[in-house]
Nucleic acid binder design. Structure first.
Lengths: 262, 262
DNA sequence: TAAATAGTGTCTCTGAGACATTATATT
DNA sequence: AATATAATGTCTCAGAGACACTATTTA
């Protein structure tokens, strides 16, 4: 332990800056949407080494005049091809293991985005192969001792870990915030919102309690004019709602499996 | 939008690396402890510009062979002078606003630490002035339009924002995890644990419900042999407990003010 | 003996699980 | 008519707020 430990509150010029070689800082994004009732994430197929042929989260370098949030918004627009993005973006956590990129030191500030029903990322995006993957096809609960991964894509770098962390963030965030409304259109029915929770959690909430809690929560949803589309198998058309102004859910929604956690 | 957007999943060598000048990466720490019943944070007085004379969170550069967590543990030991640290450390979030340091681009990966009753940071630490500050003396709810800050220290850089975020993290984390036991000694009484919640939240939980919930929560605390010290004003000596193996609280503790939040 | 503190008893109300019923639509 | 879906009714139980009470220790 030196007597003059370099610290961020002392200026780098005062110390041996060469001792602290430059680090590349990137943002990586786990962009979630619900397609055909299935929670999906956008992945990009790598052309180059390392990890050529592997799938990876979209991301990019942070520009000199950007903070991480700005860079993440820029990447989000570039990768999805969507001009005005109606969803939600937030920082997840930073991954800094020295060998996470085999050649350079790259620190990645990971972000999570939720959006309603984004289009296929073909037109508008850059040339690399990109597509939506169902979460359950990427993060299978496969036996880690088994070599048979049955067509499941191997993710580049530490992106599987990032994606697992991002998924847990989304799953817990819709418990105690109103972010589930970021996965549906501006006007939506309660059964549609119910299917959001089902898709994100991978399990069905109790239907009776769900409706009761959504309507009891202060300003979570407000009734809109008209009814939603008819269901294929029959039944009445559901009431339309739109998102209210609340951002926090009090009391929180409950994951059915949560009593068993930890 | 370029057709070849540099991304973290394509190697920096393939692109104009000079376009992405080196960035310094640091860790900053909000180290909380409870001293004399008051939630306190460790701050360091700056000698040099910028922000000479201001107080700042301890921190330092991340070494080439370290990840952020390792660097944070190292700084924690250096700054507190404590050999074996019995508390908890976790990543908070990363602050990357380009002008947060006026001269260099410095991205800071902020961390939060909780520990029981740490010593004054005089001996063992380095030469800079360091001391514990009561949270309420640093983050006063002062009128932001007023220039009179009444002796309250102005924090360097964006450290006031980091500290506010860290405080909210600690306050919410003791709701749904067992981390409150990181603020007391190995053996403790329920009144001592109650005073932890009071100090961290800045308000008193309902005493009857507190005891009921702590004892009802599976494996949050387990009874130990003997009784705690006598209270100054009289009264029976309280039963001793130690931390159980649970890490998550189900159901969560409730902040009294939480019904009003948002 | 007065005062402070530790710990328990218990009533009430809210909210969540569970089960059931009614209403409205499609095929 | 049969079937699927939307929405509501209501019983029960767990947990949280509130108030009261007993027991133990110091000054």
């Amino acid at each position: 332990m030196s007597t003059q430990t370099p610290t961020s509150d002392q200026h780098p010029d005062n110390y041996d800056a060469a001792k602290y070689p430059s680090v590349f800082v990137t943002v990586d994004l786990a962009i979630f949407t619900i397609r055909h009732g299935v929670l999906s994430v956008l992945l990009i197929e790598r052309d180059d080494e390392p990890y050529a042929g592997h799938w990876a989260l979209p991301g990019g370098f942070i520009e000199p005049d950007e903070d991480a949030g700005t860079a993440a918004w820029r990447e989000l627009h570039e990768e999805t091809g969507v001009e005005q993005f109606s969803g939600h973006l937030e920082q997840l956590r930073t991954y800094s293991e020295p060998k996470r990129d085999p050649r350079h030191r790259i620190v990645s500030i990971a972000h999570v985005a939720f959006a309603p029903n984004l289009p296929e990322p073909t037109a508008g995006s850059d040339a690399r192969s990109a597509r939506w993957w169902a979460i359950e096809d990427v993060l299978t609960d496969r036996d880690p001792t088994s070599e048979d991964n049955g067509g499941v894509p191997a993710l580049a770098f530490d992106h599987e870990q990032i994606l697992r962390d991002a998924l847990e963030r989304v799953r817990s965030k819709i418990e105690y915030t109103t972010l589930a409304t970021q996965f549906v259109d501006e006007e939506f029915t309660l059964p549609e919102l119910y299917r959001v929770y089902t898709a994100v959690w991978g399990e069905e909430p109790h239907k009776r309690n769900f409706v009761r809690k959504v309507l009891a929560a202060e300003d979570f949803v407000v009734k809109a004019a008209g009814k939603g589309d008819a269901s294929p198998g029959g039944g009445p058309r559901a009431q339309l709602y739109k998102a209210g102004t609340a951002t926090v859910l009090q009391p929180a929604m409950m994951r059915p499996s949560l009593g068993k956690r930890d």
